[in-house]
Simulated scan of single mutants.
Amino acid sequence: MQEEITKHSEKIYKTVKNSEHTLGEKLKEIIVEICIIVFAVTLSIGLHSWSEHRHQQEEVSVFLANLKNDLKNDIKNIDNEKKAYQKSNLGYKKILALTPLQLDSISKSKNTVNFPIHAHGQTMSIGNYEGFKSSGKIGYIEDEKLKQKILTYYQIFVPAINEVDKMYNDFLFKCFDKMIENADKSEAEMYSDPKFKKTIEFVVKLGKNNIRVYDQNTKPLAIELIKEIDKELNK
């Protein structure tokens, strides 16, 4: 391109210096050469912009394909964690249902109460999103609706489930602390303690709440995003 501009610029210079042509002829030749230069520059810029846009959209397509796989993994992890919550809650409910007589019987038979020990919290796949976002390429996504849903999922819903999992685990650790504090007492005494039972009740409630967050918030948006990504990739 630089060579073409230089060539036509030289023609303009030679035209100006040409004493054999009239002023009108010189002006016509100069205008033609200028038009050629302008056209060439405009075409070059247009081709460059088209090429750059095409490259950006190719990057978006790769990103969305990877994101789709991440979302599928998230859904699997959510389903697995939901089952783990349900299993833990079932175990805690059995503990809460134990009567003083049953607890006493367990102690006398030298058996132990089966207390579920499961710190919850699935690992969400955020690597592709974080990499694309940190490189400043999120703006390449031209479908504004899709872009906003992706941002909502990763900036609101993913942090939200991490937070509810953390809250659950905090209460679960309080149960562990209580067990350590009452290590010198029998299980019948410990599991009959109102404060300990109340803590377990909160653990159950938090478990139910977290299942609701998974089922009603995070998972539906992940499913919706996969559908939107499929539409975008199949355009």
Rank of each mutant, 00 (worst) to 15 (best):
V158E: 11
P159R: 09
P159Y: 03
P159S: 04
A160E: 14
I161D: 15
N162Y: 12
N162A: 09
N162D: 13
E163W: 00
E163P: 00
V164R: 00
V164W: 09
D165Q: 03
D165T: 01
K166D: 15
M167Y: 08
Y168V: 02
Y168W: 11
D170G: 01
F171G: 00
F171A: 00
F171Q: 05
L172M: 10
L172F: 14
C175I: 08
F176Y: 15
D177H: 07
D177A: 11
D177E: 12
K178C: 08
K178A: 13
K178Y: 15
M179Y: 05
M179C: 06
I180R: 14
E181Q: 06
E181R: 00
E181D: 14
N182Q: 11
A183Q: 11
A183K: 14
A183N: 12
D184Q: 09
D184L: 05
D184M: 05
K185E: 15
S186G: 14
S186H: 02
S186R: 06
S186D: 13
S186E: 14
E187T: 12
E187N: 14
A188R: 12
E189P: 03
E189M: 06
E189W: 01
M190A: 07
Y191K: 12
Y191I: 07
Y191D: 08
S192R: 07
S192H: 04
D193M: 07
D193Q: 03
D193T: 05
P194S: 10
P194R: 06
P194D: 06
P194H: 08
K195T: 11
K195H: 07
K195V: 13
F196T: 10
F196R: 03
K197D: 04
K198I: 00
K198Y: 07
K198S: 04
T199V: 07
T199H: 11
I200L: 13
E201L: 08
E201M: 07
F202W: 13
V203R: 07
V203C: 12
V203G: 02
V203D: 11
V204M: 04
K205A: 13
K205V: 04
L206V: 02
L206T: 03
G207T: 05
G207H: 03
N209C: 02
N210S: 10
I211G: 05
V213M: 08
V213D: 12
